[in-house]
Amino acid sequence: MQLLNGTNIYLRAIEPEDLDFLFQIENNEAFWEISHTQKPFSKYELKKYLENAHLDLYEVKQLRLIITSQKNKEKIGIIDLFDFNPQHKRAGIGIVIAPKYQNKGIASEALTLLINYAFKHLSLHQLYANITNTNTQSIRLFEQKKFKKTGVKTDWIFTNGVFKDEILYQLIND
């Protein structure tokens, strides 16, 4: 699908062969704050998830895509639509880039592809992201894509003995 192909990356459906990559990402404690994860995932749990990954977006209300290098087909990260609501034409968006690929413009390209897919193919009216106030890289990324700060949930996330605010960003499809 052309909407999911970029210059340096493309977004593709999850395959059973992605089990080890998912295991690495999901069990990286550095990402737990943004994914609201409380415990490690077993390969068994992830394998069960993969068995249902083919289910329709309208049924499971989530779409998880693997960010893949155009050059060498290497797995770079994961980008999600979640809380998909076709009635209200909105979805949340989340993105994780493997540490060795961060700060290379990959998240920006992946986010652009997913925004275009959501607005053009799924006819969504809006996308939103929840970002902790200390995640300056994500704040900068989403603001560069014209997401607007529309709210703050004070002391919303408790991690490592500290409360953090969570900022709501929205992008409206005009």
Rank of each mutant, 00 (worst) to 15 (best):
L4A: 12
I157G: 07
F142M: 01
K71T: 01
Y117A: 03
N103K: 15
K71V: 04
R140C: 06
K148L: 15
H36C: 03
D80Y: 04
L124C: 12
F31P: 07
Y117I: 07
K145N: 10
E74V: 12
K153T: 01
H121V: 00
L4W: 12
T132A: 11
A118K: 01
D165M: 09
L3P: 08
L22G: 10
G92W: 12
K149C: 08
N5W: 01
S35W: 15
L11E: 14
N103R: 15
K164C: 06
S42T: 13
I93A: 00
A118F: 05
T154D: 10
A98R: 06
N85M: 03
I78W: 03
N72K: 03
A110Y: 02
Y117E: 00
T112A: 15
F119V: 08
G105D: 04
Q24N: 08
E74C: 11
V60L: 09
Q137P: 04
D20I: 07
A129P: 10
P99R: 09
Y169G: 10
K48H: 14
E143G: 02
Q170A: 10
K47S: 15
L22R: 11
T37R: 15
I115H: 04
F163Q: 01
L141Q: 12
T37E: 11
S42I: 02
K153Q: 09
I131E: 05
L57A: 06
I139M: 07
K61G: 03
Y169Q: 14
H88C: 08
N27S: 01
F41H: 15
K145M: 12
T134P: 12
F147M: 02
I25N: 02
F163D: 01
I157V: 07
Q137C: 08
